[in-house]
Computed example of a mutant assay.
Amino acid sequence: MIEFIITLLFIVAPIGLTIHEMGHTGIGLFSGSKRSVLTIGLGPPIIRIKLHKLHIIIHALYFFGGYSSNEKNSGFSPLQKILISLGGPLANGLFASFLIMTTRSFVNEPFIDLLIMFNLYLAVINLVPFRLGRRKSDGYRVLQTMFRSAG
């Protein structure tokens, strides 16, 4: 049981969160972002990578969540905001689907199963509209953008 928790916390969750945030920044860059920042974890930064418009920051407590931001001079259109919000869950769903299609027939590995399940969890739970304090789910952001642009 302790191996499961350690694997989930220190390996699987950071991989899934990185894929999720890469989905947001990828769509942001595709939508004309002048600067996209992908941040993983909390605490002091230990790794900083700059790849043209993409900035990646990994903090010492890399297993404590992640977030991303995209900046564009003219701002993003409502459709672009919706697509950026959906980019994270889409990336998790595509990654899980890729693992299912490429590993299920020849690999019976609990680690892969955990990676698939966690990414499917991230894909689904982030589409559910909810707000916890100042944190908003991707689904919440999509609805918020839709209602703002409709009114």
Rank of each mutant, 00 (worst) to 15 (best):
V124W: 03
N119I: 10
P45L: 10
Y62C: 11
N73C: 10
I5T: 11
K50Y: 03
D113T: 12
G65R: 10
R131Y: 01
I47T: 08
H24F: 04
G93V: 05
F147C: 02
L29D: 02
I27K: 05
I125R: 14
G88M: 04
L83W: 06
R104Q: 12
L42Q: 10
M146I: 15
S137E: 02
R131A: 09
L115C: 06
S137Y: 07
S33K: 05
Y140I: 08
S31D: 04
M117V: 14
G88H: 10
S36D: 02
I58A: 10
A150Y: 02
G151A: 04
L120M: 13
I15A: 02
P14E: 05
I82M: 03
L29Q: 06
I27F: 13
T145M: 01
I49D: 07
L61D: 00
E71N: 15
A123N: 00
S69P: 03
L115E: 01
H20I: 09
S74R: 14
S97L: 14
L99C: 10
F76W: 06
P129K: 06
Y140K: 05
L42P: 00
Y121A: 13
G133H: 04
G26H: 01
A91C: 07
V124C: 09
P14C: 11
S33P: 01
N119G: 06
G41N: 04
R141T: 05
A150G: 09
I5V: 14
T103P: 06
K81T: 09
F76C: 07
P129D: 00
L132F: 13
T25I: 11
I116V: 13
I19T: 05
I112E: 02
S105Q: 13
I82H: 00
S77C: 02
L61Q: 10
L54S: 07
Q144S: 15
D138P: 07
M22A: 15
I56S: 11
Y140V: 07
N73R: 14
G93M: 09
P44A: 14
F4Y: 13
P14A: 06
I58Q: 08
V128T: 04
E71P: 13
G75T: 06
Y67P: 00
K53L: 08
I112M: 11
A13Q: 12
H52D: 13
F63W: 13
P89S: 11
G75F: 03
G133Q: 08
